[in-house]
Design a protein around this nucleic acid. Sequence first.
DNA 1: CCGATAGAAATGCCAGACAATTAAATGCCT
DNA 2: AGGCATTTAATTGTCTGGCATTTCTATCGG
Lengths: 254, 254
Amino acid sequence: MKSDKTTTADLSAQIAKSIRDQILSGALLADDRLPSEAELADQFSVSRPTVREALKRLAAQSLIRTERGAFGGAFVRRLSYGEAQTQNITTSTLLLSMNDVRFDVACEARYAMERACTVLAAKRRTGAHLAAMRAEITRQATPGLSDETFCASDVALHRALVDSAGNPVLSYQLAGAVEAMQPLMNMITFTARSRERIVDLHTRLTDALEARDAAQADTVLADLQAYTLDLGQGVMAARAARREKHHADSPVEG
Amino acid sequence: MKSDKTTTADLSAQIAKSIRDQILSGALLADDRLPSEAELADQFSVSRPTVREALKRLAAQSLIRTERGAFGGAFVRRLSYGEAQTQNITTSTLLLSMNDVRFDVACEARYAMERACTVLAAKRRTGAHLAAMRAEITRQATPGLSDETFCASDVALHRALVDSAGNPVLSYQLAGAVEAMQPLMNMITFTARSRERIVDLHTRLTDALEARDAAQADTVLADLQAYTLDLGQGVMAARAARREKHHADSPVEG
DNA sequence: CCGATAGAAATGCCAGACAATTAAATGCCT
DNA sequence: AGGCATTTAATTGTCTGGCATTTCTATCGG
C-alpha cells in the first residue's frame, strides 16, 4: 500500500527535492547560503552523509555551489546561460544517443529551429557575427581537415548564426539542438566534394544574412537541410541495420 | 600552483565524471549494471560514501537508476523523452527566473521557436491534435477560471500545437521553451476581454491548422505574440522597477 | 509440487572521527 | 598605530565500520 511514491523515495532525494523547491519558489535566492551540513542534518533529522548526498544531487544540477573553509558552505547558484546550455546539451546528446533517434528526425528538428531565427538574424546580425561565420567557412575550406574538426567548425558556424538573432534565450535553446546533433554528424564521412558543396551553402547563407535577406537565408537553410539529410542517409541505414540485428525479430522492410 | 582544476575537484565529482564519460562514450550501454558500490570504491581507491555521492550526482541527472536487493545495484538509465523534458524545463525555468530575463526576450524566443513548427504542423496534424487544442480552447472560454488555470491551459494548447508537428525531438526542445515561460505568464492578470481575444486567436490558429494553412497559422502566431507582448508590458515594467529598486543607482527614466 | 524459510548480496542509513581549507581574530613586532 | 604572522573556529571533504532493509535464490519441509 505504498501509494505515495515520494515518501518511499530515498531520504537524500526527498531532502534534495525540499531544498530544490525552496530555490525554485524563490524562498532561497541566488547567492543565499544554505545552513551547514550539520544544521541541515539536524533540521531533517538525518545523518550528515545523507545530507551530503542530497547536496551532491543539487550540485549536479548546478543549483548550488559549495565552498570550503570557515565561512564556506553551500550557496544557491545563479545559473548562467553557459551552464544552462551545458546541461541542456548533455541531456539532449544523451537523449539522442540512447534512443536511437533517427537521423532525419533530429535533422528536421534542428533545421526547423534554426530556420526560426532567420528573420531575427537578418534584422540584427552584426559585423562580428558575419566575421565569425566567414572565419568558420575559411576553416572549413582548409584541405586535410578531419571529419571531427569539420563538424566542430560546422557547429560553430551554426551557433554564430543562432547568436546573430540577438536573443540569448533563443541561443540557449537552440544551442542544445545544434550541439546535440554533432555526434550524429560526426558519423558522416565528408568527401571533398560534399565539403565544397557545404562551404558553398554556408557562404550563400552568410551572404543572405549580410544582405539582411531573411527569405534567402531560409531558402539556403532548407537546401542545407536537404543536403545534410542526403549525406546522412548512410548513417540512417547503418543505425537501422544495427537496430534490426539487436532486435532480430522484424525482418520487414526491404 | 593549482593549474589543473579537475585534479582539485571533489573526488566524488571526478568519479561521477569518469562514469558519465563512460556512458556518453557508449562504453556503458542502457541497462548495463555498474559495479557495486564496494567494488567501485575499490577501483577508485576511495570510500563507499564518496562513491555514493558520485552515484547520487549521476542519479540527479537521470543517468543511472539504483535498485536495492540481491541483484540490485546501479544501472545505466535509458533517458526517456519525458525525463529529458522535465530536466530541460527545470533548467530553463531556473535560468529565466534567476537572471531577470526580460519578458519580451523570452516571449520572442518562445514564439520564434513555435513558429518554426507551423509548416510541419500544418502537414502532419491529426484529428487528435485538433481535438486536444479545441478542448483547451473550450476550457479557456470557461468563466471564472483562475489566471493560473488559464495559463496552464494555454501551455497545454501550445504543447498540442508543437506535438502536432509530429517530431518528438522538436517537441522535446520546444516543451522547455514553452513551459519555462509559464511562471512569467502567471504574473499576468487576464481580464475577461483579453481572454476573449486570446481564445479567438487560438481558435483561428486551430482553424488554420485544420485547413493545413501554414502561412495563416504563422500569421496568427505572430498576432498572438504581439498581443502577449502587449499584455506582458505591465510585467516588464514591474520587473524593471524592482531591479532598479534593488540596484538603486540609476534613477533614469521617469 | 508448492510454500515457507534461511542465506547472500546489494543499497540505504547512521555515528563518529580526522584531514584540509579558509576567513576572522589575535598577537607581536616595528 | 599599522602591518604581518599566528592561532582559532567553522565548515566541507573523506574514511572506517557498522547496522537496517530489500530482494533474489536456493534450500528445506509438508
